[in-house]
Design a protein around this nucleic acid. Structure first.
Length: 262
DNA sequence: AACGGGACCAACCGCGGATCC
DNA sequence: TGGATCCGCGGTTGGTCCCGT
């Protein structure tokens, strides 16, 4: 049996949102808060389906969304979280509260996947002499800047962000990513460790949940679990996980708490 | 200057889980 | 308890821009 459409398709407008529609949606959410999306098009008169409204809000209009280029540290986090969690973009986005899952997904598909592939092909014949260099290159090169076409809406929202008491989860300040990246390099990320990380990641492939081979219980390896599941209750903490979580904790120190994913 | 192809991003689609009644 | 509905997620698509020829 098929699932009924989320909304009556007749008369539903599709395609890019206009500034007028954005304003209507933002105004409504300012008054009623996000949620109950079914009621949004009904109450606002927007000729959009509820899903479209929700998507527009969460991916574009929600206050606190950081637009523009991804920092090297953000790239690094995405790469490692993807290795750790797979294509769980929503989960990854919880570690980058200013980025949307859609943004991260797009960035991964358009930038990082290619970069990793490129680096992987470069690694195949021989490990680079200076993995740190290549890794840093991966993370810092081509941090493409895509222009925000919603600056006007953002300005519109600024007043609300300042005045609303319910925006604790939005617009949190994050320490300088550049300094954090430098910290990685100066701290744990010596050449040897980074080499291990790179080799290990490429061995486990992008879709696999990263797992320290030495700590991966063979009983956990099955048809669907050639990798260690991280959601099976009590996973081993791999080298990557340790690094990632340490850095995540450092990166968001004072700004957010890591969700209890384990 | 015109054209074609690739890159990029916003938005849509369909599915599955959660919740409601 | 089970069907209906809502919400969120991941994959995919379509439109636009950019760059090379």
């Amino acid at each position: 049996m098929g699932r009924p459409p989320c909304c009556d398709k007749v008369g539903i407008k599709k395609g890019p949102w206009t500034p007028e529609e954005d304003i209507i949606l933002v105004s409504y959410i300012q008054q009623h808060g996000p949620g109950n999306w079914r009621a949004v098009p009904i109450n606002t008169g927007l000729m959009r389906c509820s899903k479209s409204c929700r998507l527009r809000w969460t991916n574009y209009l929600r206050p606190g969304i950081k637009r523009g280029s991804f920092t090297p540290h953000e790239e690094g986090m995405i790469i490692h979280l993807q290795a750790l969690l797979g294509n769980k973009w929503a989960a990854i986005a919880t570690y980058l509260p200013q980025r949307t899952d859609n943004d991260i997904k797009n960035y991964w598909n358009t930038h990082l996947k290619k970069k990793l592939k490129k680096i992987q092909s470069g690694l195949e014949p021989q490990m680079p002499t200076h993995p740190t260099t290549s890794y840093h290159h991966l993370a810092s090169e081509n941090s493409s800047v895509y222009a925000s076409s919603a600056e006007n809406i953002s300005r519109l929202l600024q007043g609300w962000m300042r005045s609303s008491p319910n925006n604790a989860g939005f617009g949190k300040t994050v320490p300088s990513h550049e300094s954090q990246w430098q910290k990685i390099e100066e701290g744990m990320a010596n050449d040897h460790d980074l080499e291990r990380m790179l080799v290990f990641e490429h061995q486990t492939s992008n879709v696999a949940v990263a797992c320290d081979k030495s700590s991966c219980d063979s009983s956990q390896k099955g048809s669907d679990s050639s990798v260690c599941k991280i959601d099976n209750g009590n996973p081993p903490l791999s080298f990557l996980e340790k690094w990632l979580l340490d850095e995540s904790a450092a990166q968001v120190e004072g700004a957010m708490e890591l969700p209890p994913i384990f």
